[in-house]
Each structure stands twice: as C-alpha cells, then as structure tokens.
C-alpha cells in the first residue's frame, strides 16, 4: 500500500541545508498499525507529512496503492488527501467557531457531499467515537480527549484508507489518551491502516510494528511487544 523507496527530504533553513530524511525506505501493508518513534529532529513529522501528501520528497519514489505519488501535481495530491488520507494532530486543530458536527462536516464540504448526507454521516462518525451527545458543542466546551475524538471522527468521515496521527495523545492525560487509543485500535481492527508518530512507548507498544528513526533513516525495526516496559521510548 505505502511504498517509500530511498526518500530524502532537504529543507533550506537560511543558507544551511537541513536533511530531515536521508534515503529512507519503508513499506506499510493495508490494515497495518505502525508506530513511528525516534528523537526530536529524527524526521518523524516530515515522514508523516510525505506519507500524507502534504509534502513531497526531494528525492526518492513514493508509491501509494501503486500510484507514483512523488510525481503528482498539487491538484492530484489534494484529491489524495481528500479521498484516501485522514489526519489527526497533537493539538486537535478543530475550528473554534464550528461545533463538533460542523468540524466533522468540513472535509465533506470540500469534497462536495450534499448537505443532508453530510449531516447524517457526521452524526454517525461522532457516534462512532462516542461523541453522539456532544455534536452541538463547540471545541472550547469539550475536554482534550473529547476534542481529539471529534478530530478522529473528522479524519475518518471520508472513509480514508489511511489514518495518520501525529502525537495523538501528546496533550492528553493517560485516561483520556487510552480512550483515544481505544478508538484508534478499534478502527484499525475494522481495516483502517494506522500510522502513528509517538513518543509514548505505551502507545507504540500496541502497534504491530515500531519503526524507530535516527537521523532521517530507519534506525531499528521492532514489534510492539519488543519495546521496553516504560519510560525510555525516546
């Protein structure tokens, strides 16, 4: 499904080139649950952005479902983001003036889904993350865990094949974090491919595979159960 071949990504900061990724290769099969770990600056977020078609590699080939994404133009990438990929962010990124249902409807607005269908699909998606009773609440009226579940409903309402999560539990206490991870785990069990960037070994341990990045390359590949029991995931 996701095939990354020798991906490099170089940013220019000032006059200095910064190599965020240096020839990284990785495959993700449909329905997999992969955690990406690694120290700050090891290229985790950059990798996630490239997988999510928000960014392009400077070198290397990215194939998604057999399509060579690294050659596509911005319009085509937008379509892929809309149809195939869902994003969940550490800071939720909910639109403050819209209520929960309005936030979940957003991607459908851009996809041109008719209003009636949007309403019912948003309601169903919110119910799926246990937020059926909070559809009319605005983000500031919700707890962090609730906000992240609204964000997950929004990321999955277009029924993408892949969900990309960047530190989804980073701003949550452990109880709320576990609730959020339970939702993600269940969606993965229903067939959603899950790629999670995390610092938290408890989150990573639930993954089938853990990819540890180091200096823009894959440092180690582990299974979730091979991770140490706590703490030193960094």
């Amino acid at each position: 499904m996701i095939r990354l071949e020798a991906i490099s990504r170089t940013f220019v900061v000032g006059t200095e080139p910064v190599h965020a990724l240096r020839g990284l290769s990785e495959h993700v099969r449909p329905g997999e649950y992969v955690a990406i770990m690694g120290p700050s600056g090891s290229g985790k977020s950059t990798l996630l952005h490239i997988i999510g078609c928000l960014d392009r590699p400077t070198a290397g080939v990215y194939r998604l479902d057999g399509e060579t994404v690294s050659e596509l133009d911005e319009t085509a990438l937008t379509a892929i983001r809309r149809e195939k990929i869902g994003f969940v962010f550490q800071s939720y990124h909910l639109v403050g003036r819209l209520d929960a249902a309005g936030n979940v409807e957003l991607p459908m607005v851009f996809a041109g889904v008719p209003r009636g269908e949007r309403r019912s699909r948003a309601a169903a998606a919110l119910e799926g993350v246990g937020m059926a009773g909070r559809t009319r609440h605005r983000p500031h009226q919700l707890s962090g865990g609730e906000r992240q579940r609204v964000a997950i409903a929004r990321a999955t309402v277009m029924r993408p094949a892949i969900l990309l999560a960047d530190e989804p539990t980073g701003n949550l206490d452990s109880a709320a974090g576990q609730q959020v991870m339970a939702v993600l785990r269940r969606m993965n069990a229903e067939g959603l491919t899950l790629v999670v960037v995390t610092h938290d070994p408890d989150v990573a341990r639930e993954a089938e595979r853990v990819v540890v990045l180091k200096d823009g390359r894959v440092g180690r590949r582990l299974t979730g159960s091979e991770l140490p029991a706590s703490g030193s995931g960094k």
């Binding site: 809309r82 639109v95 957003l106 851009f110």
Partner: peptide
C-alpha cells in the same frame, strides 16, 4: 493560517 493549513490537510484545494 493554522486553519488554512488544516483545511488543506482535510483535502481543500488551493482554489477552494
């Protein structure tokens, strides 16, 4: 700006 980034991530095109 943040909202614009979000909308783009959710599949809004530049022209939208």
């Amino acid at each position: 700006t943040g909202e614009i980034g979000l909308l783009r991530a959710l599949g809004a095109s530049a022209s939208q």
